[in-house]
Structures are given as structure tokens and as C-alpha cells.
Design a protein around this nucleic acid. Structure first.
Lengths: 157, 157
DNA sequence: TCGATACGTCAACCAGGTTGTCGTAACATG
DNA sequence: CATGTTACGACAACCTGGTTGACGTATCGA
């Protein structure tokens, strides 16, 4: 075994960051500024039906307050529209604007392009094997990427 | 190509987090509490000779102030000893305590065990191929894992 | 010798979370 | 139908882990 466990972990992190940084830079270039993955997550969840504050909080695994702040940003930037629920006076219903849908679409495209660029360099099957290996190990895409505290020992219990 | 680029990115992140979470939980179990990767990075850098605040800041890619806070924690927890530099009155020299060296040693061991457990599940060569693929792609272990703002668009320019 | 530079530190601030509290709306139950 | 319980959304306050800017002091170099 030539690579230490720590090195392997850092390579995985490095791989993610390479994609994430390149992706967010490319998104900015295409007019979607200041976007971070958590925003993409939120938009995706809204689209999937989690269209209220409480529901989004559950879905993303963060507090309602954090949702309010995040959605506030997305609304200010024109990605999300908010309206009152006629049947439940407490609720505020979120939905994606045209721009919001455009971001999701563009984001998907950008990351596929990055994946293809990688596939071209090491071979599509090599790259696929990476994903397969991780999937076989039962690695799940983290449902809620709690950026701060991503390491905080608390994550374990 | 069966997996989207976004999925690939999230699998990489998930893989890292799986290792990091399991590792830090196991470290806590072995008596090294409240340890996050940045602490390991700092200890490693000190051991490698970056034994002053400014040098550590350059090495880790964070501000001197952040170094002061981090090292303050490590000193309080007994991982790092601080002494004055006799030749340069401004400097404070950092060094690892016995406990600090123990942490590094244990950490290495823990992560190797995790790697081995993975190798056992999917085969050592499969796992090695993952690391090789990432290395071939020129992925670097991020020198400074700026936990907060790891996504902040700023990373790109 | 003395200006430029580097070190370490402090205070202030910022981002992105959390918790606790609260008013209000909906619901369920006697 | 009155009322207690629960859920929603919002606010304020706080925490963590960073950053920046200012500063005093030590060293170096022309």
C-alpha cells in the first residue's frame, strides 16, 4: 500500500475542491455570481417540493433560521420567489424563478463538462471506477454540507 | 457516462467526510479530543520546521491571527510547547510535546486502519486506483484547508 | 545610524451557522 | 365551540473560526 490513509483522505478532499472551485468559477463566468453549493442544494430541494422554511430546514439538515438567511439571499439575488400560502396563513411558499431554474441547468452542465474534461485525461472508465469504488464503499453524498463545523467532532455522534 | 459531474463531486466530498468523521471519532476514543484536521496540519508543519507564528501562517495559508488562535488551543490542550527565541527577541518558538507527537503518530495509524478497512471491502488495487486516478489528475492535497469559506467564490481568483 | 522590514499581538469585524423566544395560525379534543 | 397543543416563521443574541488593520518592538541593511 503506497499511499497513507491520510493522503487518501486529502486526495478525496482535493478532488472535490478542484471540481467545486472550477465549477463555481465557471458559474460566475456565466453570470451566476456568489453561488455556493449550499445554494444549489437549497434550490434543488425547493424544486423537489420542499417549499417552506421548516421543510427546507429538515431537508437540508440545518436550522430554520439558517434557511431564512439562505433563502433571503437567494431571493435577493433573484433565484427564488416567495408568496403567501392561501390555505395556511403561517406559511410562505418558495418557488424557483426563471433565473433559479437557469442556475440549476447551467450548474449541471458545468459540472458535467468538468467531469468530461477529467475523463478525457485519465480515461472515462478510470474515472467511472473512482465513482464506483466510492459508491461501493457506501459513501453517500452528504445530504447537508454543514460548511462551518464540517469537521467539528460533533459530526460523529 | 452514468454519473453526473455533480454526483462525482459529492461522492468525493462524501468519501473525505466519511474518513474524516470516522478518523476524528476514533481519535477521540483514543484520548485525543476535539481534534480537527487543521490541528493535525499545524502540528505537522511545526514538526517540519515551521516553528514560528509567521512561518506557520505562510505554510498553512491562513492569517497570523488565526495561527495564534490555533496554536493557543494546541498549547492549552498540551500538544504544543512555546518558548522564547534567544537569538530573536520577537519570536516565539513552537515545538511539539510528547502528547503532540503521540497525536500525530496515532492519527497516522488511525487513518491507515481506515484505509485498510476500505481496501478490504473493495480490494486494495481498486482503492489504490482511486488515489492514482486523482493523483494523475493533478489533484493536490489542499495545503490550507480554509474550513470557513472553503467554497467562497474567492477561492477562484 | 536610522529607515525599512518582519514578528507577534490586540481589537474589531464578518460569515454562516445555532439556540431561545415569541406571536400567530392550525388543529385536535373535550 | 372553546381551548390546549403543536407547528410555522421571524427576531435577537450568541458562537466559532476565520480576516483586516493598527501597533509596539526587534532586527537587518544601506
Amino acid at each position: 500500500m503506497t499511499r497513507s490513509g491520510a493522503d487518501l483522505a486529502l486526495l478525496l478532499l482535493g478532488g472535490f475542491r478542484a471540481l467545486a472551485d472550477a465549477g463555481s468559477a465557471e458559474l460566475a463566468r456565466r453570470g451566476y455570481d456568489k453561488i455556493r453549493p449550499v445554494h444549489d442544494f437549497a434550490l434543488r430541494s425547493i424544486l423537489a417540493g420542499a417549499d417552506t422554511t421548516a421543510e427546507l430546514a429538515r431537508e437540508l439538515g440545518i436550522s430554520k433560521q439558517a434557511v431564512i438567511k439562505t433563502v433571503g439571499f437567494l431571493e435577493a439575488e433573484g433565484y427564488v420567489a416567495v408568496e403567501a400560502d392561501e390555505r395556511d396563513g403561517r406559511r410562505r411558499l418558495y418557488s424557483l424563478t426563471h433565473r433559479g431554474r437557469g442556475l440549476l441547468r447551467t450548474g449541471e452542465q458545468v459540472f458535467n463538462e468538468l467531469r468530461d474534461a477529467w475523463a478525457q485525461r485519465i480515461g472515462a472508465d478510470q474515472l467511472e471506477a473512482v465513482g464506483d469504488a466510492l459508491a461501493d464503499l457506501g459513501v453517500r453524498a452528504p445530504a447537508h454540507l454543514d460548511a462551518a463545523g464540517w469537521f467539528s467532532g460533533s459530526s460523529a455522534e
